[in-house]
Amino acid sequence: MEFALSEDQRMLQDSLSGFLKDAAPLDTIRKIATGDKSSAAALVSGLDDFGLSGLHVAEEHGGLGLGLLDACLVQEALGYAIAPSRFMATTVTAHALRNSGEGHLPAIVSGAMRMGLALTELSSRRDGAGVSAENGRLTGTSLLALSAEESTHMLAADTSGSLHIAQTPDNVAMQTIDRTRIFSEVRFAGEESAASLKPDDEVLAVARLLAAADTLGAAQAMIDKAVAYAAERQQFGRVIGSFQAVKHMCAEMASRLEPSRALIWHAAHALDTGEPEGLVMATLAKSHLAEAGTFIARTSTEVHGGMGFTDLVGLHYWFKRIGVNRQLFGSPEQCRHDAARLQGWLEPA
């Protein structure tokens, strides 16, 4: 019985965090958020050296063969640095293809296939969106697709819940509050489905778990910033962190996030080992982190006082990343509804 990260996992986390600390300081994130493609490209190519595209692909297909727990540690580090990355899209796709043989996996590992995710309609369909698959061809639009820009292929859900891999069609960026990542409307116009997969609750659960891990990292960053600010900022002749009103806000943030970290680890491990509770845990991890993350985003901003509200400090980039993760792949209410369904609580006795 050991509920802890392995030495390798800690090393992965440390080396990636160390790299991001140097390669993605706030100045770089600002440039990326204001449309500087070369900064984004430099960061992405640096991240490629970590072999992230093959992290969750079995070794027999050329990947590292690591599990979702490792993937969550990577996503947490990316969230902490609010770095843009194709990692979430790649990892969810790798998981969707986990049982389908070699297929596209080596191309995903090598980077020849760069994946985007069009799964929004699995949890909510509106404004005429929805992809249909007929005779092996996809038509229709998907909103708020992740990493579609500069992708070669999409993992897209159709209106029956089946998943497809197809070439990325025409797409236009959709402006969200979060400028650290690009979201798009993708418009399928008869692209061929290169792989068709049956509806799979686990794929959505994995996407949600990774979004939760991203929030875990971003929220931890916001706590660290709040605590550092509270220990340094002086008012009334003393540091504000010595006032109980401020101190208690910091304690409340830490108290909400610390058990959330264990929840992410447990949910990821449960999915990795095929425990039946894994799906429910991952789904509830998403809603739980959404609530804890939103609380921390506002509380950390408040600890920073007026400065927290400015663009100068840049705290708002984390606030917005957490705000987008909250809705991405389903709101907290939607996730909780799904978790009830997964436990058979919706069927009348």
Binding site: M1, E2, F3, A4, E258, P259, S260, A262, L263, W265, H266, A267, M281, L284, A285, S287, H288, E291, P332, E333, R336, H337, A339, A340, W345
Partner: peptide, 27 residues
């Protein structure tokens, strides 16, 4: 039901936190 599921998420988190503490104690 929504409130119930919210609490279930929190219970999962505290249980996982408990497992983590057990491991720290073991070490």
């Amino acid at each position: 039901r929504d409130r119930l599921l919210k609490l279930q998420g929190e219970v999962y988190a505290m249980q996982a936190n408990g497992l983590r503490i057990t491991t720290h104690n073991l070490k």
